[in-house]
Computed example of a mutant assay.
Amino acid sequence: MLKSVAVILVPNFSVFEFATACEVFGIDRSGRGSNVPAFDFRVCTPEPGNVRMKSGLSLNVSLGLEATADADLVIMTPFGRDDDVPESVLEALRAAHARGAWVMSICSGAFALARAGLLNGRRCTTHWHYSHELANRYPEVQVDENVLYVQDGNLITSAGTAAGIDACLHLVRVELGANVAAAIARDMVVPPHRDGGQAQFIDRPVPACGSAPMEELLRWMVQNLEQEHTVVELASRVHMSARTFARRFRSETGATPAAWLNSQRVLRAQELLESTDLNIDEVARESGFGHPVLLRHHFAKVLDTSPQSYRRAFRGQLVTAG
């Protein structure tokens, strides 16, 4: 049962994501008429003392990494560069995982789990802003940028900011039940459950790649979403063999050509649903899916919702109904 929680801080940590763990596990709610236990909540760091925040302020932390030795859950908070994480932190994460404790990362904290080797061959997530870097630096890790959080065994990784709350509440629900998770969520005034498969609902430009030819190809693909694109045809445009191209494409984008293309088509469909009066058939054609059934399939797969539901939720006042 989940009783003790240790949160690891390293210099340049993000205070908001740290605070999400504090809100869920660090407040004693046991006397408020619910079944919520009082967690043994610990904040630790490799070198006890003042730990600098990303904002420039600092927090005095009195506990060292020995606080993780018997914790039921060890949380890695976001920080600066992954090569700034001391080996002692990586060892603490490995030890916690080896003895069967839960290990969680919030936002870019996933880089520490990846560097420790815990995510090798596993599916994980992080904030979409860092997803391609994580995939490029650790190609043996299966990065999914289109979800809020991922549980793989006793490892949980989450996307940015509020997704950390979702991941924490998910673990509470798994370990202590839906009623306890709902009581904590009610006290925090947040939704008691957002499924991890729900998308981060991101909208971003074509990512910069390691090579100009590949980046130019990506831009051409986005401009020609309505076309069918085979690996052989795409490889020929950048003068590579199909095998080399497929390897390079995944290395630079974190996805296969087909998956990347479908994600761009979904993004285009999102834009059309938000900003136009086009019906679903027209959105399917304009976004490159061709048929509504394919649009609905990929929308459900990537965003875990339907095009109609997405339009109702995100269209707002962008379009005046006709």
Rank of each mutant, 00 (worst) to 15 (best):
M240Q: 14
A167G: 08
G290F: 05
D187S: 13
Q142N: 12
L63G: 05
M1C: 10
A178H: 11
S30D: 00
T253F: 02
C124H: 05
N262Y: 11
Y138M: 09
H291E: 12
P307G: 02
G322F: 12
H291V: 13
P192A: 09
V51L: 04
N120L: 03
S4N: 05
Y149N: 06
P46E: 00
M53Y: 03
A258S: 14
A96W: 01
A182Q: 15
A284C: 07
A67N: 01
F249P: 14
S131Q: 12
V51G: 02
N179C: 12
T276R: 06
A258Q: 13
L93N: 04
I156P: 02
S62Y: 01
L169R: 05
C107R: 03
P78N: 02
D82Q: 08
F249S: 06
L155A: 06
L267H: 11
R247P: 07
T276C: 10
V283N: 04
V89E: 01
D195H: 13
V293R: 09
F18L: 08
F314T: 12
R265E: 06
K3F: 03
H297R: 14
H291R: 10
A284E: 10
E66P: 05
P257W: 00
F314Y: 11
T157A: 05
T276S: 15
D84M: 06
L171Y: 01
H229W: 13
F18T: 10
D28A: 00
T256H: 12
V319R: 07
A92I: 03
G26K: 00
V61G: 04
A98I: 07
G196I: 06
W128F: 15
L148I: 08
H229K: 11
I156K: 04
F18V: 07
D203S: 11
R52C: 07
F18A: 11
Q198A: 14
A182D: 15
M240K: 13
R186E: 15
V172S: 02
A101K: 03
R173V: 02
E252Q: 15
H291A: 07
V143G: 10
H193P: 01
P139N: 03
A284H: 06
T256C: 06
H297V: 12
V150Y: 00
R123P: 06
Q308M: 09
H193Q: 12
A162K: 09
H170D: 03
R250Y: 09
T77K: 05
F41A: 00
V232G: 15
G254E: 11
R296V: 13
Q264Y: 04
A6V: 04
D82P: 14
Q227T: 10
E87Y: 09
A181L: 09
F249T: 12
A321K: 10
V266R: 07
L119V: 03
A185L: 08
T256N: 06
A235Y: 05
G153L: 00
R311G: 12
F25Q: 02
W102R: 08
R312F: 04
G290I: 09
G64F: 00
R29A: 00
L273S: 09
A69W: 00
W220H: 15
Y149F: 14
E140G: 14
